[in-house]
Amino acid sequence: MKEDYSDEELLKQFENEGTRPKAFNLLVIKYQKRLYWHIRKMVLNHDDADDILQNVWIKIWNGLSKFRSDAGLYTWMYRIASNECLTFLNKKKKKLLVPLADMENLLSQSLEADSYFSGDEIQLKLQKAVLSLPEKQRIVFNLRYYDEMKYEEMSGLLLTSVGALKASYHHAAKKIEKFISGD
């Protein structure tokens, strides 16, 4: 079975009720990893990432028929995923009544207890450093550092200028450097 359908082909198949479930299934297969890793790096814990990702797919299913292609499909899905992550983190903060500064400790502890984290001590330290970044800076850092995304592509995704993204990445990398090398 062909699995490398273009977004346009998948959207066209989704419009047809007869082929809608199959088209959506192919869409999930095509983008599940990119969305998962974006979410996972925001919330760190696998179970949380899994819950959020499932909700994201439900939202995509509910909204896809209204999707208009002026923004790219992945950009649209990525924004839904980002919003879900931020909603999740805000809910968690409110539920646990923790100030923002303590939230990173909480996520950090959750990371240490996560059986699906295989990093060594330095990787754990790196993740803790990443956690200390503001959320938007964290997204920029992850996209550049792990996904090696070009600034131009990131600009379309985050609706931020290339210059601002470069500055944001530089700040983030500097902060992490300081965190891991000297304390």
Binding site: Y116, Q123, L124, L126, Y145, Y146, I176, E177, I180
Partner: peptide, 20 residues
């Protein structure tokens, strides 16, 4: 990254997260 953060650039960029 080497220019901005030399120590960070030496860390293995492998993804430390796993999935079931």
């Amino acid at each position: 990254l080497e220019d901005i953060a030399p120590s960070l650039s030496k860390i293995d960029r492998a993804n430390p997260f796993e999935v079931p």
